[in-house]
């Protein structure tokens, strides 16, 4: 076991384990998160993302493994870790009965601000997060996006060195999601390291400098967005046939031309093939047209999370019960 943390890293975790009864929620997670970047943890529900974050933010004690957070030992130096990290949980962890302003003042007081400074800091944050108009309303009247912004504001009353954002955009409309993305970018620009979990490859791709893919409590792939996609192939060809009866024939042609596995989708007239080389897509379309198979629709898309999972694990990113949340 290593005895000294690497000071270049915001998080250094080796073999983290957390079991709940017989469920291995986290089963040996290794993470090396460099300082000053957005690090994405990607995975389906129940993969162990939330449990990992709860351990790294000191809410859960690991059953095994070792980790340093901002250079502090996660288990032996809990106080120091708490002093420099901040957590925004998956469910907005703000008090619904209080107003937005009261929530922030409370946290500022708890973080050592004087009465007066608490009020000033709250006003500043409410202004910055576009919540000034709603400051005196109870949080229960807020929309999902407002609640999420308040939640993040609450996490940066004292600007942390490292912030955990657990699925910060799940359930948000596109406009609110963009606002959260802007906040994340501003945080990193200000020097904070961000670790965010997400179920969306697109989000990880947009925001994260590096991504770890988690499944069944283990990191199964790690790298930049580009590296991950390259490991999956550069994209997927989706086809929709005019005549579903020709599906088998089309599948045969595609397999031959693309030299890649072809998957039938839920819709009986559609097929999906992963491509190592996108230029082959035109060959495939030409071959189909020669065989007289007419297409209603086709698209060449970025690989989705499902495809990444299929490629990495051989099984789709199924939705399981959220193990971490039940605790």
């Amino acid at each position: 076991m290593q005895s000294n943390p690497n000071t270049e890293l915001a998080i250094e975790a080796h073999g983290l384990i957390k079991h709940f009864g017989g469920t291995k929620a986290v089963n040996g997670v290794d993470l090396l998160v460099p300082r000053g970047m957005v690090y994405g943890v990607l995975g389906p529900n129940g993969a162990g993302k939330t449990t990992t974050i709860r351990m790294l933010s000191t809410l859960l004690k690991p059953d095994g493994g070792h980790a340093w957070v901002m250079g502090h030992d996660l288990v032996r130096d809990v106080g120091a870790v708490r002093g420099c990290v901040s957590l925004t949980g998956q469910y907005a962890s703000v008090d619904e009965d209080l107003t937005g302003r009261e929530n922030l003042v409370l946290l500022a007081r708890l973080l050592g601000y004087s009465r007066r400074a608490s009020k000033e800091r709250s006003a500043e944050l409410l202004e910055a997060f576009d919540l000034a108009d709603a400051a005196r309303r109870q949080v229960r009247t807020y929309s999902g996006g407002m609640r999420r912004r308040l939640d993040i504001a609450a996490s940066i009353v004292v600007t942390p060195d490292l912030i955990f954002l657990d699925e910060p955009t799940t359930g948000l409309d596109p406009r609110s999601r963009n606002q959260v993305w802007d906040i994340v970018r501003a945080l990193v620009a200000g020097g904070t390291t961000v670790l965010l979990t997400t179920q969306y490859l697109d989000e990880a791709d947009q925001l994260a400098d590096r991504i770890a893919v988690i499944d069944h409590g283990k990191v199964i792939a790690e790298g930049t967005g580009g590296e991950l996609k390259a490991s999956v192939g550069s994209g997927a060809l989706h086809l929709r046939l005019k005549n579903p009866a020709l599906l088998l024939q089309a599948e045969g042609i595609l397999t031959a031309v693309l030299n890649a596995p072809v998957v039938a989708e839920a819709d009986p007239a559609t097929l999906m093939a992963r491509l190592a080389d996108t230029s082959k897509a035109t060959d495939a379309l030409a071959a189909l047209s020669q065989a007289g198979i007419e297409l209603e629709q086709f698209s060449l898309g970025q690989p989705s999370l499902d495809e990444v999972f299929l490629a990495l694990t051989g099984h789709p990113a199924e939705s399981e019960e959220k193990i971490g949340e039940q605790q």
Binding site: G112, F129, A189
Partner: peptide, 21 residues
Amino acid sequence: RFASNEALNRALSTRLRPGQA
């Protein structure tokens, strides 16, 4: 998207740590 992105940056750039309560 915000009333002012400057306000956001200002709020985030405060690295004040008032000490423990």
